[in-house]
Amino acid sequence: MQTEVKAFLRRHGLLAGFGLFLISVALSADAFLTPGNIFDVLRQVSITGVMAVGVTFVVITGRLDLSVGSLLTLLTVIVVDQHNTSGPAMAILITLAAGIGVGMFNGVLVGLVGLNALIVTLAMLSFLQGLVLFYSGGSNVNVQNAQTTWFAVFGRHDLLGVPVPALIFLVTAVIAAFVLNRTVFGRQVFAVGGNETASRFSGIASRWTVFWAYALSGLTTAIAAVIMGSRVMGAQNTIGQGYELTVLAGVILGGTSLLGGSGSIWRTVLGITMLGFIQNGLLLLGFPYYIQWLVTWAVIILAVWIDLGAKRGRILA
């Protein structure tokens, strides 16, 4: 009996705890579980969510991508600025290309050259922040025809009553889940993360697998930047600051192991969404804004702890 309870908590403890949290917030804040608030949360998590979908690929290969926060800032600045000069369609294309480009650059250094992922992407985080200031000259940019552009659809509109950014998040996640679970590339991602040496002995070009995972991470961050630019209709030089940690927290909270080789897209979706509801719930309960950072920290530590416990259990079994 006792071991069954332990096993249940290990498997579903986070979800159960999250359920309790939802109920207790709902009981004390009437606005919490209303469609309006739920859509607000979904709109908020769609940006980190789309990014986390790409980062999940990188994490499953057993690596990290910490550059996505600065990349989001840079790409948001680019999409807004280009919107004014080249028009929305061109701006989106340039943004996607730039995102994939930066991802590939990370991929060359980590995958093909074999440098340490933590250092490479942390350095990239710093480099891109510098690039933002170089590009914008330090001033904020704004979309000039914010009231009339169709660019607003990505961040501000609803489709059939559902916020478009949430739909973009959903579609990205569904496509990514298909790629991860059903395609040759997805299988290679799991294999490389699970055992890189055995993958090489099986004829898998593990370096290129890692390369493409980073390219994907760049692509999803670019999609997130389009949503962000559309929602804010402008960009400050710090707009994506700290996003890399929230994204990573969502991935870990979902249960994708930092050791590589296991994880899933729907888990990341769940992790990111849980984080969103926790932060929203705390605000509704009247806690000051900064409390959410402390709670995010505690939740991450808890998630990693439970993950470790489950691993030890598995090793002993």
Binding site: V184, R187, Q188, F190, A191, G194, N195, T197, A198, S199, F201, S202, G203, I204, G261, S262
Partner: peptide, 18 residues
Amino acid sequence: QGLVLMMGGMENTTLPHL
């Protein structure tokens, strides 16, 4: 060198011939 231990037997079997 031989196996991806976390994967199932089926996925290990087809790994070199995806």
